[in-house]
Write a protein that binds this DNA or RNA. Sequence first.
RNA 1: CGGGGCAUGGCGCAGUUUGGUAGCGCGUCCGCUUUGGGAGCGGAAGGUCGCAGGUUCAAAUCCUGUUGCCCCGACCA
Length: 588
Amino acid sequence: MVLHMSSLFLRTLREDPADAEVPSHKLLVRAGYIRRVSPGVYTWLPLGLRVLRNVERIVREEMDAIGSQELLFPALLPREPFDASGRWSEYGPNIFRLQDRKGADHLLGPTHEEMFTLTVKDLYSSYKDLPLSIYQIQTKYRDEARPRAGLLRGREFVMKDSYSFDIDEAGLDKSYQAHRDAYVRIFDRLGFHYVIVEAMAGAMGGSKSEEFLATAEVGEDTYVHCTSCGYAANVEAVRVPAPDPVGWEGVPAAHAEDTPDTPTIETLVNHLNEHYPRDDRPWAAGDTLKNVVVMLVHPDGTREPLAIGVPGDREVDEKRLGAQVEPATVEAFDEKDFAVHPGLVKGYIGPGALGLEGTTGIRFLLDPRVAAGTRWVTGANEPGKHVIDLVAGRDFEGDGTIEAAEVRFGDPCPNCDHVLEGARGIEMGHVFQLGKKYAEALDLRVLDQNGKLTTVVMGSYGVGVSRAVACVVEGNYDDAGIIWPRELSPADVHIVAAGKDEALFSAADEIARDLEAQGLTCIVDDRRGVSPGVKFKDSELIGVPTIVVVGRGLADGKVEIKDRRSGERREVALEGIVEAVLAEVRAS
RNA sequence: CGGGGCAUGGCGCAGUUUGGUAGCGCGUCCGCUUUGGGAGCGGAAGGUCGCAGGUUCAAAUCCUGUUGCCCCGACCA
């Protein structure tokens, strides 16, 4: 179909919209692809809808290619399935809830694990029906605390979600790999730089999970990668290599010393260097053991204090901690909490008071770096006193380890002897071995070869479809505007009639018809009385990869082909334009 | 939920300090000229200045309250 600019429902903006911050948001609004309706909710204008449909098409093709079957669940869901999984209450304020005229609770689906699981349970009952892979491309609703960055984090967004159902773990591995391969093809076709990183598998543990992150400055996720061995992980999922245990022969017995007015690591290190200098080198923050106490809030509302021991030169990373304790959430340990636990001396908390066996009985988890044999300076549980030469494994033990300390670029790679570099990314896809979590919660079981009921093993896989539109722009723009990868472009060719001579317009239309006959879609800028400069600017802003200019050369039987990305232009004889454009389109 | 900022024609903004007939650029409409890099001239339409109270002869401007939006953080299957 040929789109005529003279009648296309489009208005480009010369200036950036005031409420947009990130490039994709500014450009998609300026170029007339989307309009904001309310925070995190957007209208897709004709050009934008074409791009969205293109993303959907690519996703659909690759999902179909691995034998996944498309279906469509409603966005409007009754409460019951979410009661069954416990998420009606777990989700808290993050879902849109509503009632029907009878007062029955409903919600707008934020995700559809329950529906997929229950529908399979409804229809299938035998191992012979498995494996199964089903997917949908559907609008999701989440009442985000803070929508931002245009399409990158919305309250209404389009997502492809799919689920695999297998009889055993081996089947799950195959389904997972098939999805992973399909995702590689999808993201290659979408045309942006991405990395595949290890991700948190969630509270179930042991399951495999990877994220596809589009590399972008504006990304909300931080990941690290090793330049040598290829290891890459979301910082939430980084495993700190634990040093080998060392012996403590010759280490003096732990001794408490006066360290007045040293409630912080910095004041402590200064005091140590002044009053208890080391022979080999000055004391450093990394020699101290910092014991941080937080309050966990479990989904049932119970509160549990938790102490975390990390080297004093590192902060506790709240995201990493949160990922570790999921589904519980973390709150600060406040003055009231300290009052309840007089055994905790603020600023001087030491292992002696901690641990299930300690005086306070507070669970105490250690950073992996606090391995057996390591020596520490730490609080003596008395104001103004610290313990020196406290040896892990000899003088204290934790109730386990936890990955909660911050990850820094330059930290050692857990896989090889190189160091980790880091960058930001946007989560575009997630493949996840769910295991039996939902199948157990919702009782999805089938009969196996022996006639016994066995719980189905599930995988969960998502692609942010509308987010991908913004994400592609983040990776494909210049000062003049958007530069669409060919597969996503709202049209194959943008034809500009530059001039006022009527012959230009009829030639432009003729070219469009000929290209259309070859299966290409065209935008024709046939606006009369609009100066060439305006048309050039608009064509660059809109970002169709191939631009054909029908202008002053037409008198000599020449038109111009311009490559949006390189800016390269060349003159082509009018009669050869269709072949030239086809070659251009096929080449990229 | 904490911190910061902003609400004035379709879009981007000035005007608020020091109260006195609501302005500029872009866009839109009409006419003439112009047509290879966001044209020129002339004319026109379009705003109860987020909302509600208050002070005042007089409020976009001062006071009180309230709502919405954007950014940073918390949060984010």
